[in-house]
Design a protein around this nucleic acid. Structure first.
Lengths: 145, 145
DNA sequence: TACAATTTAATTGTAACCAATCAAATGATT
DNA sequence: AATCATTTGATTGGTTACAATTAAATTGTA
Protein backbone atom coordinates (compact mmCIF):
# COMPACT_ATOMS: atom_id res chain seq x y z
CA UNK A 1 0.00 0.00 0.00
CA UNK A 2 1.28 3.45 -0.81
CA UNK A 3 2.22 5.45 2.25
CA UNK A 4 -0.41 8.08 1.58
CA UNK A 5 -3.20 5.56 1.20
CA UNK A 6 -3.22 4.49 4.84
CA UNK A 7 -5.72 7.26 5.60
CA UNK A 8 -8.14 6.28 2.84
CA UNK A 9 -11.50 5.13 4.12
CA UNK A 10 -11.47 2.16 1.74
CA UNK A 11 -8.24 0.89 3.25
CA UNK A 12 -9.50 0.74 6.81
CA UNK A 13 -10.52 -2.55 8.39
CA UNK A 14 -12.31 -0.74 11.18
CA UNK A 15 -14.71 1.18 8.99
CA UNK A 16 -16.58 -1.75 7.37
CA UNK A 17 -16.68 -3.34 10.80
CA UNK A 18 -18.28 -0.23 12.24
CA UNK A 19 -20.66 0.27 9.32
CA UNK A 20 -21.69 -3.38 9.00
CA UNK A 21 -22.31 -3.59 12.71
CA UNK A 22 -24.69 -0.64 12.63
CA UNK A 23 -26.42 -1.78 9.44
CA UNK A 24 -27.09 -5.24 10.87
CA UNK A 25 -28.34 -3.85 14.14
CA UNK A 26 -30.83 -1.77 12.15
CA UNK A 27 -32.27 -5.01 10.80
CA UNK A 28 -33.24 -5.90 14.36
CA UNK A 29 -35.18 -2.68 14.83
CA UNK A 30 -38.53 -3.83 13.43
CA UNK A 31 -38.75 -7.26 15.08
CA UNK A 32 -37.39 -5.93 18.38
CA UNK A 33 -39.73 -2.95 18.46
CA UNK A 34 -42.58 -5.47 18.53
CA UNK A 35 -41.18 -6.59 21.90
CA UNK A 36 -40.34 -3.07 23.02
CA UNK A 37 -36.63 -3.91 23.21
CA UNK A 38 -33.56 -2.19 21.84
CA UNK A 39 -30.69 -4.25 20.46
CA UNK A 40 -28.57 -3.79 23.55
CA UNK A 41 -31.46 -4.75 25.78
CA UNK A 42 -32.00 -7.81 23.57
CA UNK A 43 -28.46 -9.15 23.91
CA UNK A 44 -28.68 -8.50 27.65
CA UNK A 45 -31.83 -10.61 27.78
CA UNK A 46 -30.01 -13.28 25.75
CA UNK A 47 -27.37 -13.60 28.43
CA UNK A 48 -30.07 -13.86 31.09
CA UNK A 49 -32.00 -16.50 29.17
CA UNK A 50 -28.82 -18.56 29.41
CA UNK A 51 -27.59 -17.66 32.86
CA UNK A 52 -30.74 -17.10 34.96
CA UNK A 53 -28.77 -14.74 37.20
CA UNK A 54 -25.61 -12.74 36.77
CA UNK A 55 -23.99 -9.68 38.30
CA UNK A 56 -23.19 -6.44 36.50
CA UNK A 57 -19.48 -7.11 36.26
CA UNK A 58 -19.91 -10.54 34.66
CA UNK A 59 -22.59 -9.18 32.36
CA UNK A 60 -20.23 -6.43 31.32
CA UNK A 61 -17.53 -8.98 30.50
CA UNK A 62 -19.93 -10.98 28.35
CA UNK A 63 -21.23 -7.94 26.46
CA UNK A 64 -18.06 -5.80 26.47
CA UNK A 65 -20.01 -3.03 28.19
CA UNK A 66 -19.42 -1.17 31.44
CA UNK A 67 -21.69 0.02 34.23
CA UNK A 68 -22.04 3.41 32.57
CA UNK A 69 -24.02 1.70 29.84
CA UNK A 70 -25.49 -1.16 31.83
CA UNK A 71 -26.83 0.65 34.89
CA UNK A 72 -29.46 2.71 33.03
CA UNK A 73 -30.19 -0.16 30.64
CA UNK A 74 -30.84 -2.58 33.50
CA UNK A 75 -33.04 -0.03 35.25
CA UNK A 76 -35.06 0.21 32.07
CA UNK A 77 -35.43 -3.57 31.82
CA UNK A 78 -36.47 -3.56 35.48
CA UNK A 79 -39.09 -0.89 34.81
CA UNK A 80 -40.40 -2.99 31.93
CA UNK A 81 -40.80 -5.88 34.37
CA UNK A 82 -38.35 -8.27 32.73
CA UNK A 83 -35.66 -8.40 35.42
CA UNK A 84 -35.00 -7.78 39.09
CA UNK A 85 -31.97 -5.94 40.49
CA UNK A 86 -30.90 -7.06 43.95
CA UNK A 87 -27.80 -6.44 46.02
CA UNK A 88 -25.97 -9.61 47.00
CA UNK A 89 -26.24 -10.29 50.74
CA UNK A 90 -22.70 -11.70 50.86
CA UNK A 91 -21.22 -8.64 49.18
CA UNK A 92 -23.27 -5.50 49.11
CA UNK A 93 -21.22 -4.07 46.27
CA UNK A 94 -22.47 -6.74 43.89
CA UNK A 95 -25.77 -6.24 42.10
CA UNK A 96 -27.43 -9.45 40.98
CA UNK A 97 -29.67 -9.40 37.95
CA UNK A 98 -32.37 -12.05 37.56
CA UNK A 99 -35.23 -12.75 35.19
CA UNK A 100 -38.82 -12.29 36.26
CA UNK A 101 -41.50 -14.69 35.03
CA UNK A 102 -42.34 -12.13 32.38
CA UNK A 103 -38.69 -11.95 31.38
CA UNK A 104 -38.57 -15.71 30.94
CA UNK A 105 -41.72 -15.66 28.84
CA UNK A 106 -40.22 -13.08 26.53
CA UNK A 107 -37.79 -15.69 25.20
CA UNK A 108 -40.46 -17.55 23.25
CA UNK A 109 -41.68 -14.29 21.74
CA UNK A 110 -38.13 -13.60 20.56
CA UNK A 111 -37.44 -17.08 19.24
CA UNK A 112 -38.03 -16.22 15.59
CA UNK A 113 -35.91 -13.07 15.54
CA UNK A 114 -32.59 -14.72 14.66
CA UNK A 115 -34.25 -16.36 11.66
CA UNK A 116 -36.02 -13.17 10.58
CA UNK A 117 -32.78 -11.23 10.62
CA UNK A 118 -30.74 -14.11 9.22
CA UNK A 119 -33.01 -14.17 6.18
CA UNK A 120 -31.82 -10.64 5.33
CA UNK A 121 -28.18 -11.69 5.34
CA UNK A 122 -27.31 -13.75 2.30
CA UNK A 123 -23.91 -15.06 3.26
CA UNK A 124 -23.23 -18.71 2.58
CA UNK A 125 -22.80 -20.89 5.67
CA UNK A 126 -19.09 -21.09 4.89
CA UNK A 127 -18.71 -17.35 4.60
CA UNK A 128 -20.73 -16.73 7.75
CA UNK A 129 -18.64 -19.29 9.61
CA UNK A 130 -15.39 -17.78 8.44
CA UNK A 131 -16.58 -14.27 9.32
CA UNK A 132 -17.61 -15.50 12.76
CA UNK A 133 -14.20 -17.09 13.29
CA UNK A 134 -12.29 -13.99 12.22
CA UNK A 135 -14.43 -11.65 14.34
CA UNK A 136 -13.79 -13.67 17.48
CA UNK A 137 -10.13 -13.92 16.59
CA UNK A 138 -10.04 -10.14 16.40
CA UNK A 139 -12.10 -9.68 19.53
CA UNK A 140 -9.96 -12.00 21.65
CA UNK A 141 -6.88 -10.47 20.18
CA UNK A 142 -7.86 -6.96 21.24
CA UNK A 143 -9.05 -7.99 24.67
CA UNK A 144 -5.52 -9.18 25.46
CA UNK A 145 -4.15 -5.70 24.80
CA UNK B 1 -27.95 -25.98 15.38
CA UNK B 2 -30.58 -27.01 17.88
CA UNK B 3 -33.74 -24.95 17.64
CA UNK B 4 -33.31 -23.54 21.13
CA UNK B 5 -29.74 -22.44 20.53
CA UNK B 6 -30.63 -19.72 18.04
CA UNK B 7 -31.00 -17.26 20.91
CA UNK B 8 -27.61 -18.01 22.45
CA UNK B 9 -25.24 -15.10 22.38
CA UNK B 10 -22.42 -17.31 21.15
CA UNK B 11 -24.43 -18.28 18.10
CA UNK B 12 -25.03 -14.76 16.87
CA UNK B 13 -23.01 -13.32 14.02
CA UNK B 14 -24.14 -9.83 14.89
CA UNK B 15 -22.80 -9.80 18.42
CA UNK B 16 -19.07 -10.25 17.68
CA UNK B 17 -19.49 -7.73 14.90
CA UNK B 18 -20.97 -5.24 17.34
CA UNK B 19 -18.46 -5.97 20.09
CA UNK B 20 -15.39 -6.02 17.85
CA UNK B 21 -16.44 -2.78 16.24
CA UNK B 22 -16.64 -1.02 19.59
CA UNK B 23 -13.44 -2.58 20.90
CA UNK B 24 -11.47 -1.48 17.85
CA UNK B 25 -12.91 2.00 17.96
CA UNK B 26 -11.70 2.22 21.56
CA UNK B 27 -8.16 1.66 20.28
CA UNK B 28 -8.49 4.91 18.37
CA UNK B 29 -9.40 6.87 21.47
CA UNK B 30 -5.89 7.67 22.69
CA UNK B 31 -4.31 8.68 19.36
CA UNK B 32 -7.44 10.58 18.29
CA UNK B 33 -7.76 12.44 21.57
CA UNK B 34 -4.37 13.96 20.83
CA UNK B 35 -6.04 15.58 17.80
CA UNK B 36 -9.25 16.34 19.66
CA UNK B 37 -11.25 14.10 17.33
CA UNK B 38 -13.78 11.36 17.94
CA UNK B 39 -13.79 8.26 15.74
CA UNK B 40 -16.80 9.45 13.75
CA UNK B 41 -15.23 12.84 13.25
CA UNK B 42 -12.04 11.08 12.13
CA UNK B 43 -13.70 9.02 9.40
CA UNK B 44 -15.53 12.14 8.29
CA UNK B 45 -12.20 13.93 7.96
CA UNK B 46 -10.89 10.91 6.04
CA UNK B 47 -13.57 11.34 3.41
CA UNK B 48 -12.75 15.04 3.17
CA UNK B 49 -9.03 14.39 2.84
CA UNK B 50 -9.95 12.38 -0.25
CA UNK B 51 -12.79 14.42 -1.67
CA UNK B 52 -11.94 18.05 -0.84
CA UNK B 53 -15.66 18.90 -0.85
CA UNK B 54 -18.81 16.86 -0.50
CA UNK B 55 -22.41 17.44 0.48
CA UNK B 56 -24.19 15.93 3.47
CA UNK B 57 -26.12 13.39 1.44
CA UNK B 58 -23.04 11.99 -0.29
CA UNK B 59 -21.13 12.00 2.97
CA UNK B 60 -23.96 10.07 4.55
CA UNK B 61 -23.82 7.48 1.79
CA UNK B 62 -20.09 7.03 2.27
CA UNK B 63 -20.32 6.70 6.04
CA UNK B 64 -23.74 5.03 6.32
CA UNK B 65 -24.89 7.91 8.52
CA UNK B 66 -27.82 10.31 8.21
CA UNK B 67 -28.23 14.01 8.81
CA UNK B 68 -29.40 13.36 12.35
CA UNK B 69 -25.88 12.23 13.16
CA UNK B 70 -23.97 14.33 10.67
CA UNK B 71 -25.50 17.76 11.27
CA UNK B 72 -24.24 18.15 14.86
CA UNK B 73 -20.97 16.39 14.04
CA UNK B 74 -20.25 18.74 11.15
CA UNK B 75 -21.13 21.74 13.28
CA UNK B 76 -18.59 20.53 15.80
CA UNK B 77 -15.89 20.11 13.13
CA UNK B 78 -16.77 23.59 11.92
CA UNK B 79 -16.39 24.99 15.45
CA UNK B 80 -13.01 23.32 15.70
CA UNK B 81 -12.00 25.11 12.53
CA UNK B 82 -11.44 22.05 10.35
CA UNK B 83 -14.27 22.48 7.84
CA UNK B 84 -16.65 25.03 6.38
CA UNK B 85 -20.37 24.46 5.86
CA UNK B 86 -21.84 26.39 2.94
CA UNK B 87 -25.15 26.20 1.13
CA UNK B 88 -24.80 25.46 -2.56
CA UNK B 89 -25.77 28.46 -4.68
CA UNK B 90 -27.26 26.24 -7.38
CA UNK B 91 -29.45 24.37 -4.90
CA UNK B 92 -30.02 25.95 -1.52
CA UNK B 93 -31.09 22.61 -0.03
CA UNK B 94 -27.59 21.22 -0.43
CA UNK B 95 -24.96 21.91 2.20
CA UNK B 96 -21.41 21.66 0.93
CA UNK B 97 -18.67 20.67 3.33
CA UNK B 98 -15.09 21.72 2.62
CA UNK B 99 -11.77 21.55 4.40
CA UNK B 100 -10.13 24.63 5.83
CA UNK B 101 -6.36 25.02 5.68
CA UNK B 102 -6.26 23.78 9.26
CA UNK B 103 -8.37 20.76 8.26
CA UNK B 104 -5.92 19.93 5.49
CA UNK B 105 -2.98 20.23 7.85
CA UNK B 106 -4.60 17.80 10.26
CA UNK B 107 -4.02 14.98 7.80
CA UNK B 108 -0.30 14.86 8.40
CA UNK B 109 -0.86 14.82 12.15
CA UNK B 110 -3.12 11.81 11.69
CA UNK B 111 -0.87 9.94 9.31
CA UNK B 112 0.55 7.56 11.89
CA UNK B 113 -2.79 6.60 13.44
CA UNK B 114 -3.58 3.66 11.11
CA UNK B 115 -0.19 2.16 11.96
CA UNK B 116 -0.54 2.78 15.69
CA UNK B 117 -3.91 1.06 15.77
CA UNK B 118 -2.86 -1.63 13.31
CA UNK B 119 -0.03 -2.60 15.63
CA UNK B 120 -2.64 -3.55 18.26
CA UNK B 121 -4.40 -5.91 15.86
CA UNK B 122 -2.41 -9.05 15.30
CA UNK B 123 -4.25 -10.55 12.37
CA UNK B 124 -2.14 -11.94 9.56
CA UNK B 125 -2.39 -10.07 6.26
CA UNK B 126 -4.38 -13.00 4.86
CA UNK B 127 -6.82 -13.00 7.75
CA UNK B 128 -7.22 -9.24 7.64
CA UNK B 129 -7.82 -9.38 3.90
CA UNK B 130 -10.40 -12.10 4.22
CA UNK B 131 -12.16 -10.27 7.04
CA UNK B 132 -12.19 -7.11 4.94
CA UNK B 133 -13.69 -9.00 2.00
CA UNK B 134 -16.40 -10.63 4.10
CA UNK B 135 -17.33 -7.38 5.84
CA UNK B 136 -17.86 -5.58 2.55
CA UNK B 137 -19.75 -8.57 1.21
CA UNK B 138 -22.05 -8.32 4.21
CA UNK B 139 -22.33 -4.55 3.99
CA UNK B 140 -23.21 -4.50 0.29
CA UNK B 141 -25.57 -7.37 0.84
CA UNK B 142 -27.54 -5.51 3.51
CA UNK B 143 -27.57 -2.23 1.63
CA UNK B 144 -29.50 -3.94 -1.17
CA UNK B 145 -32.27 -4.90 1.23
C1' DT C 1 -48.34 29.56 -13.79
C1' DA C 2 -50.13 26.71 -9.86
C1' DC C 3 -49.43 23.08 -6.93
C1' DA C 4 -48.45 18.43 -5.63
C1' DA C 5 -44.53 15.44 -5.01
C1' DT C 6 -39.84 14.93 -4.04
C1' DT C 7 -35.46 16.04 -2.19
C1' DT C 8 -32.29 17.79 1.24
C1' DA C 9 -30.89 19.06 5.90
C1' DA C 10 -32.25 20.20 10.31
C1' DT C 11 -34.68 19.17 14.45
C1' DT C 12 -36.64 16.39 18.23
C1' DG C 13 -36.61 12.79 21.43
C1' DT C 14 -34.77 8.50 23.14
C1' DA C 15 -31.15 5.37 24.03
C1' DA C 16 -26.79 4.03 23.88
C1' DC C 17 -21.62 4.41 24.61
C1' DC C 18 -17.74 5.52 27.21
C1' DA C 19 -14.11 8.28 29.82
C1' DA C 20 -13.71 10.00 34.12
C1' DT C 21 -15.00 10.35 38.69
C1' DC C 22 -17.36 9.08 42.95
C1' DA C 23 -19.13 6.43 46.99
C1' DA C 24 -19.60 2.47 49.48
C1' DA C 25 -18.16 -2.11 50.68
C1' DT C 26 -14.60 -5.31 51.16
C1' DG C 27 -9.83 -6.96 51.62
C1' DA C 28 -5.01 -6.53 53.03
C1' DT C 29 -1.36 -4.81 55.97
C1' DT C 30 0.44 -3.36 59.89
C1' DA D 1 -8.59 -2.07 65.36
C1' DA D 2 -6.98 1.49 62.05
C1' DT D 3 -5.65 2.62 57.62
C1' DC D 4 -4.72 2.03 52.88
C1' DA D 5 -5.83 -0.27 48.56
C1' DT D 6 -9.04 -2.58 45.71
C1' DT D 7 -13.38 -3.74 43.93
C1' DT D 8 -18.04 -2.86 42.40
C1' DG D 9 -21.69 -0.09 40.56
C1' DA D 10 -23.51 4.44 40.06
C1' DT D 11 -23.11 9.01 38.33
C1' DT D 12 -21.77 12.83 35.27
C1' DG D 13 -20.90 14.89 30.98
C1' DG D 14 -20.21 14.80 26.19
C1' DT D 15 -20.88 12.56 21.71
C1' DT D 16 -22.97 9.57 18.78
C1' DA D 17 -26.89 6.92 16.52
C1' DC D 18 -31.23 6.77 14.60
C1' DA D 19 -36.45 6.91 13.99
C1' DA D 20 -39.65 10.21 13.10
C1' DT D 21 -40.96 14.63 11.88
C1' DT D 22 -40.43 19.27 9.99
C1' DA D 23 -39.14 23.13 6.87
C1' DA D 24 -37.47 24.86 2.84
C1' DA D 25 -36.10 24.41 -1.89
C1' DT D 26 -36.63 22.21 -6.12
C1' DT D 27 -38.84 19.40 -9.66
C1' DG D 28 -42.61 17.55 -12.26
C1' DT D 29 -46.98 18.02 -14.18
C1' DA D 30 -51.50 19.49 -15.10
Amino acid sequence: MKTNDALKLDNQLCFPLYAASREIIKLYHVPLSRLGLTYTQYITMMVLWEEKHINVKELGKRLFLDSGTLTPLLKSLENQGYITRTRSSEDERVLVVELTAQGKKLKSKASNIPYEVGACVNLSPEEAGELYRLLYLLLNNISDT
